Simulated assay, not measured.
Amino acid sequence: MKVSDLLTRPGAVGEREDSTVAWHYGDPLREQRALTVGALVDRSDRDIVTVTGADRLTWLHSLTSQHLSALAPLTGTQLLVLSPNGHIESIAGVFDDGTTTWLDTEPGAGAALVDFLTKMRFFTEVDIATVTDDWAMLYVSGDTTLAEPDILPVPPAKFATGTLPPRPTVQYAGETLPDGGFARRVDTLGQPGVDLLVPRSDVASFADKRGLPLSGTWAYDTLRIPALVPAQGVDVDHRTIPQESPWLLARAVHLDKGCYRGQETVARVHNLGRPPRTFAMLHLDGTEEHPPAPGTDIKAGARTVGQVGTAARHYEDGMIALTILKRAIAENPEAQLTINDSAAAL
């Protein structure tokens, strides 16, 4: 993937030598504060996939967790691809412009999604393409031009069939942009924001036209933590089911849409019990200078009760981490937890 032009801006630093977007621009804490008001984040490392053809929405509806057959043009939503046992395999943002359904995923996750979709094509009139080389995603915080997200309430266990409207569980208002691509209202950081898909060659000029301060992906990911928004590949492991993430359940899973791969597990957990784990935010005591690495064990005494996901230093709350914990631990505010040499509190 081509290195973003915004990574060449003064002060820009990549997280790794092979990074294609800026991790920060010299002051991550200031960039977090800016992002709570109005700033632009270069997320052009996300994988972009298109699905075209007359059957695209009904076909995606049959394969994924979201109700897509009635997705209106210029509307966005979220979807999950689940394993036969209900574990999350892919998380994707969605936008349909009337002729093309755009899917965006975490960096490196697009290949698995395309592979799954391609294997499920059979005789359906759809075409699938990876267009990451031509299109890039940006995020702008504080933009309230588009209408607020329309989110359906999660129904109680054993709800009556037909209770949920036959529509996506979250509907993000959107519009097409003059030079192609789209704007999609989102609530990814627990605040107003807009995802923008623009031609990759126009990323720098588009950012300049907006005239907003730049924030890196470090700031963006830090603000995901208190919003309890998991990222595929960091926070979601091979055992994660939708109910373990209340954020994803409310936005990406329609509980009354009929059969799809993994649906039996989703329905059984929703109607007969609670998930064994749940996402939570931890405060660390600051003993260690750097955040713990993803995958670091979280212990209650000598017992491992979870692993660290995204972890960072928040501009107000100090060192925090997103984790998926055993439910009994996550529901106990007095739990005594440790991560390496640091004490951690829910």
Rank of each mutant, 00 (worst) to 15 (best):
Q336N: 14
A204L: 14
A227I: 10
I128F: 03
L35D: 06
G53Y: 04
V266L: 03
K2P: 11
V154I: 15
R327V: 13
L7F: 04
V114F: 01
G86T: 13
Y139L: 12
G38T: 08
R56A: 05
D18R: 05
I48L: 03
P294K: 01
T64Q: 07
Q78K: 14
A111Y: 02
D202R: 09
H67G: 03
M1A: 08
D195W: 00
F116T: 14
A160Q: 15
T8V: 10
T222C: 15
L346Q: 11
M281W: 04
A311M: 02
D208R: 11
A183L: 00
L212F: 13
V308R: 00
Y220C: 04
A173P: 04
A227F: 07
K119M: 12
R261I: 15
G273D: 12
D297H: 10
V94G: 01
I241F: 01
A330F: 07
L35V: 09
P166F: 01
D18P: 08
D179H: 06
P291G: 07
A173Y: 00
P166H: 02
T145Y: 00
A302C: 06
P199A: 12
D97Y: 04
L197P: 05
D45N: 13
H254A: 09
F123P: 07
L71I: 15
I91Y: 08
P292F: 08
L74W: 03
G262W: 01
D133H: 15
S205N: 10
G26W: 09
D5L: 06
L248N: 09
P294C: 10
A335F: 06
L29D: 12
E316N: 13
A204S: 15
A54S: 06
V194E: 00
R46I: 05
A219R: 05
T161H: 13
E125P: 04
D285Q: 09
D221K: 11
L71G: 09
D96V: 05
T50W: 07
H290V: 14
T75F: 02
D256P: 11
E31R: 03
L29N: 08
G26K: 07
T8F: 12
F159C: 14
A173L: 02
V41H: 02
T222D: 11
G258M: 06
E316T: 15
G193Q: 01
G233N: 12
G93W: 02
D96N: 05
E331C: 04
C259D: 08
A300I: 05
F206V: 15
D127Y: 04
M1T: 13
E89Q: 15
E175Y: 00
H238W: 06
W135A: 02
P292G: 13
I225F: 05
M281G: 10
M137Y: 13
V126Y: 02
I339T: 08
S342N: 11
E316R: 13
Q32Y: 04
V94E: 00
L255K: 01
D150V: 09
E289P: 09
T118H: 03
V203H: 01
P155K: 07
L322W: 06
T163A: 08
L322C: 10
M319P: 15
I88A: 05
G76R: 03
V140W: 00
D237F: 12
A112R: 09
T296I: 03
T64L: 07
Y260A: 04
E244D: 13
V94A: 04
H290S: 12
Y220I: 10
G233Q: 10
